[in-house]
Design a protein around this nucleic acid. Structure first.
Length: 327
DNA sequence: GACGCGTGGCC
DNA sequence: TGGCCAAGCGT
C-alpha cells in the first residue's frame, strides 16, 4: 500500500457509522420493487438474479428472470435440463458462459446440497460461476447474513464517500475489502440491509457518469464532494473493445444456434462472418467452452450432453454402465 | 494482475 | 458517432 491520502480513510470499526442510518433510511423510501427482492423469490431466485446481473443491466434481466423462474422454479428443475436449454433461454443477456455455469451450479446444488441453495459462504463460493461478490450477495440477500458485499456500485460509493476519490481502482484491492469490512454494521440484519442499501445508492444516485448529489442522503458527509469533486487521477479504465473481435463473432455464431431448432450445418455458420480464420477460431472457442457441441458431418448444436462429471460429487455416479453411450 | 468474455442503451 | 457503462468470473 502506498502512502496516498486514499489509503488511510478516517473510519472506525464503530458499528453505527454515520453512513448507515441515512443510507438505509433512503433505501426504505426509494428501493426499487424488483422481483428477486420479494420474499417469494427465495434463495434460488436471488441466485439466478445475481448470475444474470453480472455485468448486465436490470432492465434487460427482468423479462428473462421471470421466464427462468417460471420454467425452472427450483435448482433441480434446471439441473434436469440439457445445458443447451439454459444457453438458449439465456437469450441475448450476453456472456452466455454464465448460463452454462448457472446450469452447472444447479447440478451441483442438486447433487451435493439436496437441492437447496447452500447457506455458507464457502459452499456458495465452491459453485461454478460464483465468486467472492456473488457468494457474499446470496448469503446476504437470501439468508440475511453479515458479509461485505463489494460490487462495482458499493466500491464507487465507498470510494467517494469514505475515500474521497471519484472512482475505485480498476481491480478490487485489499484496502477496499478492509474498508468495507470496517464499515459493516455489527448487527447481522442491519449489515444485510446496509449491503442492499449501499448497492442501490450506487445504482440509482451515486452513478458512474453523473452522480445526483442533490438526491444523495449522505452528500453532507461525502469526502469526495467535500473535497470539491476532484477528477479521477491515475490510469484510465481499460475500455472494452468489441467491434471486429472474436467476441462479436462468437455472439453471431451463438445467435444462429440459439434460434435453430436442431443442428446447424457448418455452411450456415459460415455466413455470419467473412474472415475464415477468425470464424474458425471463434467456433473452436465456443466448442472448447462447452457452449457448442460439434456433431458428425459438420453439424453443430447447443450442448445436449453434460460436459463433465462433477469432481466434487459426494457420491460417485453409478459406475459408467458400459454399453450405454451418452447421446 | 491482466485478459477474454456479449449485448444494448445512452449522451 | 462511438466510447462508456452495466449487481463479475475464471484463467
Amino acid at each position: 500500500m502506498t502512502a496516498s491520502p486514499a489509503s488511510s480513510p478516517a473510519v472506525s470499526t464503530d458499528s453505527s457509522h454515520a453512513l448507515h442510518s441515512p443510507v438505509i433510511a433512503w433505501f426504505d423510501e426509494h428501493a426499487r420493487d424488483l422481483p428477486w427482492r420479494r420474499p417469494e423469490a427465495g434463495p434460488w431466485g436471488v441466485m439466478v438474479s445475481e448470475f444474470m446481473l453480472q455485468q448486465t443491466p436490470v432492465s434487460r434481466v427482468l423479462p428473462v428472470y421471470e421466464q427462468w423462474l417460471a420454467r425452472w422454479p427450483r435448482p433441480a428443475d434446471l439441473a434436469a435440463e440439457a445445458p443447451g436449454e439454459a444457453v438458449r433461454a439465456w437469450g441475448r443477456l450476453g456472456y452466455p458462459r454464465r448460463a452454462l455455469r448457472l446450469h452447472g451450479a444447479a447440478v451441483a446444488i442438486t447433487d451435493r446440497h439436496g437441492g437447496d441453495v447452500p447457506r455458507e459462504h464457502g459452499q456458495l463460493l465452491a459453485l461454478p460461476g460464483i465468486g467472492e461478490y456473488t457468494a457474499a450477495a446470496v448469503a446476504s440477500f437470501a439468508y440475511g447474513q453479515r458479509h461485505a458485499v463489494l460490487d462495482t456500485n458499493v466500491r464507487r460509493v465507498l470510494a467517494r464517500t469514505a475515500t474521497g476519490v471519484e472512482y475505485p481502482p480498476n481491480a478490487t484491492t485489499a484496502a477496499e475489502r478492509r474498508l468495507a469490512r470496517a464499515l459493516l454494521p455489527e448487527d447481522e440484519g442491519t449489515a444485510a440491509r446496509w449491503a442492499a442499501a449501499s448497492m442501490e445508492l450506487g445504482a440509482l444516485v451515486c452513478t458512474a457518469k453523473s452522480p445526483d448529489c442533490a438526491r444523495c442522503p449522505v452528500a453532507g458527509l461525502c469526502a469526495w464532494r467535500l473535497a470539491g469533486k476532484p477528477p479521477h487521477e491515475g490510469p484510465p479504465r481499460r475500455g472494452q473493445t468489441y467491434a471486429g473481435t472474436d467476441r462479436q463473432v462468437r455472439g453471431k455464431l451463438l445467435a444462429v444456434l440459439r434460434e435453430a431448432v436442431g443442428a446447424v450445418p457448418q455452411s450456415v455458420l459460415d455466413t455470419v462472418w467473412d474472415e475464415p480464420v477468425q470464424r474458425a477460431r471463434a467456433l473452436d472457442g465456443l466448442v472448447s467452452d462447452g457452449l457448442v457441441e460439434p456433431l458428425d458431418g459438420g453439424f453443430y448444436r447447443l450442448p445436449q450432453t453434460l460436459p463433465q462429471p462433477d469432481p466434487h460429487a459426494r457420491t460417485q455416479p453409478r459406475a459408467q454402465t458400459p454399453g450405454h453411450p451418452q447421446v
